[in-house]
Design a protein around this nucleic acid. Sequence first.
DNA 1: AGTGAAACGACCGTAGA
DNA 2: TCTACGGTCGTTTCACT
Lengths: 155, 155
Amino acid sequence: MSANGKPMQLDAVSKAIIEQLQSDGRRSYAEIGKAVGLSEAAVRQRVQKLTDSGVMQVVAVTDPMQLGFYRQAMIGIRVTGDTTAIADRLARVAAIDYVVLTAGTFDILAEIVCENDEDLINLLNKEIRSIPGVQSTETFVYLKLQKQFYNWGTR
Amino acid sequence: MSANGKPMQLDAVSKAIIEQLQSDGRRSYAEIGKAVGLSEAAVRQRVQKLTDSGVMQVVAVTDPMQLGFYRQAMIGIRVTGDTTAIADRLARVAAIDYVVLTAGTFDILAEIVCENDEDLINLLNKEIRSIPGVQSTETFVYLKLQKQFYNWGTR
DNA sequence: AGTGAAACGACCGTAGA
DNA sequence: TCTACGGTCGTTTCACT
């Protein structure tokens, strides 16, 4: 139910529940209840509502570095024609984990995750620059990830 | 224990477990066990190891849009001097949820989440462009988030 | 690194304020 | 929207392979 257009107004308790799950997504409802001063059932209902409405999701996230993906980069892309069609196509590439349409000197920003520089070159040439309509790309190789906090939109 | 420098080699079963938790971070170990063909205890041991080693985390992520944060943007930043010090300072701003040091025509990329354009202007002027050493910024306002897949590094 | 069993605790539906 | 409660299922520990 729900998921209309209007922003959801969260009270302090719901915010506290989200914080609990942000630090550990597998914490039990009972434990969260103790922390926020609510019964287990009440916490469960609120979590249900938050996930059903799409405000919150509990998911596993992985560290590319620890899995041997040592090269990450943001690619700024300038295109002609339909940006959505091109972004759609980029979104289907497994090594591209983030695609956003933007206003500014780039039309699309895409984040890529790969093992090394050779993979990066191949990705750029074979999966990005080869798409009809892609005019130019600019690559920003990641040196150090300083902060990452989880919010989300589509998938 | 662990978290050395070498990449962790995951077998098909661990990958399957991660996939299960990527689609629902609260799925029970028993249920995951059924899906991947392992006992509940074995699944739990593997999940423990994956989280202890830092390869995987189960966390809550929220949708800024649904919470009334209608304006998101990536800011490309050019600086003089110590990039780390400036990135550190940016990371402490709540409205900045992502900071990465890069090689390329920007030294730092920062993603911001705010309610409207006025907030965006204030953030840019008061929290970013006012930092000593920041030479210039380029703003890429998000029009549409097309893909977001969760990997992570630091926090 | 895996299984199985028994005690314990979490989860879920339902009833009621 | 919350608490209370009972049945069911998941989790934990441990002994064993």
